[in-house]
C-alpha cells in the first residue's frame, strides 16, 4: 500500500513544532519551510528522522539527494520520488 506522503510530512512537521514548544499551526504544501513555518536545519533534521520512522526511508542519507528543499511540497516530492524508485 502506498503511504500517504503528504499526510506523513505534515504530521512530522507538526510533531517538530509541538516538541520544540511552538504553536502547531496548519501546514500547507505551498508553505516555505524556513520563512513560513520557521524550521531551521535542526528542525529539518528532526523531521527527516520522524519521516524515516513513519515511511521507512531516509533519502537524505544517500549523497544522491542534492535537491534544494524550500517548500513543504519539495519535501513531499523527494519522498514520493524515493519511495517510487527501487531500493539500490
Amino acid at each position: 500500500m502506498k503511504p500517504d506522503v503528504t499526510e506523513a510530512v505534515t504530521t512530522a512537521i507538526r510533531s517538530v513544532l509541538h516538541d520544540t514548544g511552538r504553536d502547531t499551526k496548519p501546514v500547507a504544501s505551498t508553505m516555505l519551510l524556513a520563512a513560513d513555518i520557521g524550521l531551521d536545519s535542526l528542525d529539518l533534521a528532526q523531521t527527516i528522522v520522524l519521516l524515516e520512522r513513519s515511511l521507512g526511508i531516509d533519502p537524505f542519507r544517500s549523497a544522491s539527494t542534492s535537491r534544494t528543499v524550500r517548500t513543504v511540497s519539495d519535501l513531499v516530492s523527494i519522498y514520493d520520488h524515493a519511495l517510487a524508485s527501487p531500493p539500490t
Binding site: 536545519s41 533534521a45 527527516i48 528522522v49 531516509d58 537524505f60 542519507r61
Partner: peptide
C-alpha cells in the same frame, strides 16, 4: 543519531 542534514542529532 546520524543525520544527513546536521551530521548527528541528539536522541
Amino acid at each position: 543519531l546520524p543525520s544527513g542534514i546536521t551530521g548527528e542529532l541528539v536522541a
